[in-house]
């Protein structure tokens, strides 16, 4: 029962924070402010949930708690695209819809190529895939830097806005599109959920226990990449959010059962994001951004994990 109790208190905390976020400190007309806040909360719940889920699954597949799917180069690729768009087209930029779809498409093409390259021969080590992704990410980073230096300071401010995830100006049509996408992916991934507990035991045990290992892992990796791509395209990169919430979920839930872990990490993610957004809006009054705070905390926590006697 303690697990249920834990999940219950997480859910209560999440709901309470959302309520505070929605209703507290309402200045100006209700009809104007309230719908905007609702949209923000929706965006947070969606992306927070998607990132938490993706990271947890990713860590289970890789059997490693200090990895996050954001590092395979998706964040850097997104930044490269955003920088390029502003570099090439300047102020007459792409429409938000086009940019959204184009970002997702580009990230998926990248992931497809990466996976193709890696899974062409059996027995490729997953860490190898990650390292290749990370190196390519660094390469994308150099290219972005090159363009960022050449852009004039006013336009650079627009690149800089893209560098940090933000829930402030999300278009409703994109939100709807992302919601449908995430829901479909969620539905598809249901069939693999029962495998996760066993996958956590490692490849050999999973094969022994009758899981179609290669098939499952490939599908799950694509699911993970899609989730990250959609949430990144929607709000921007939050590299260390997943790492933070997946590990907190493991520590808090103290179980091997993924049904509980996933629910827990999604709730924690929502709590972190809504809480963070409250801080940014009402305490820092927008002097910093949510993703900077999350990356700061997540990054610090990551260091703590590494320096603690770790069990990987």
């Amino acid at each position: 029962m303690t697990h249920k109790w834990k999940l219950g208190s997480l859910a209560a905390a999440a709901v309470a924070l959302i309520a505070v976020f929605l209703f507290a400190n309402m200045i100006g007309s209700f009809d104007y402010v309230f719908p905007r806040r609702v949209f923000k909360v929706l965006a947070i719940v969606m992306t927070g949930g998607a990132i938490a889920f993706a990271t947890l699954v990713f860590q289970t597949i890789t059997n490693n708690r200090i990895l996050t799917p954001s590092i395979i180069g998706l964040d850097s690729l997104y930044m490269l695209l955003q920088t390029f768009v502003i570099f090439a087209f300047g102020s007459m930029s792409l429409s938000a819809e086009l940019n959204f779809i184009f970002s997702i498409a580009l990230m998926m093409v990248f992931v497809a190529l990466l996976y193709r390259l890696m899974f062409k021969r059996e027995g490729r080590n997953l860490y190898f895939l990650l390292l290749v992704g990370l190196v390519l990410g660094t390469l994308f980073g150099s290219l972005s830097t090159f363009m960022q230096v050449l852009i004039d300071p006013n336009e650079f401010m627009r690149v800089q806005d893209k560098m940090f995830a933000s829930f402030n100006n999300i278009r409703t049509d994109l939100l709807l599109f992302a919601a449908i996408g995430l829901a479909l992916i969620g539905l598809y991934s249901m069939r693999f959920m029962k495998f996760l507990d066993v996958l956590a035991l490692g490849r050999e045990q999973a094969v022994n226990l009758g899981i179609p290992y290669d098939y499952t892992v490939k599908r799950l990796l694509i699911i993970v990449a899609l989730l990250i791509a959609i949430s990144t395209a929607l709000v921007g990169p939050i590299t260390f959010l997943g790492l933070l919430v997946a590990n907190v979920a493991h520590q808090f839930m103290k179980t091997y059962r993924h049904s509980l872990l996933i629910a827990g990490s999604m709730l924690i993610s929502i709590i972190a994001l809504v809480g963070g957004q409250l801080l940014v809006e009402r305490v820092f009054t927008f002097s910093t951004t949510l993703s900077v705070i999350i990356n700061f905390i997540g990054g610090g926590y990551f260091l703590y994990l590494l320096l603690r006697e770790n069990r990987t």
């Binding site: 990370l134 900077v292 590494l306």
Partner: peptide
């Protein structure tokens, strides 16, 4: 090196 690059990313975020 994966750990190292992640470590670098963390410092980068600071």
């Amino acid at each position: 090196p994966l750990v190292g690059l992640m470590f670098g990313n963390v410092i980068g975020s600071l």
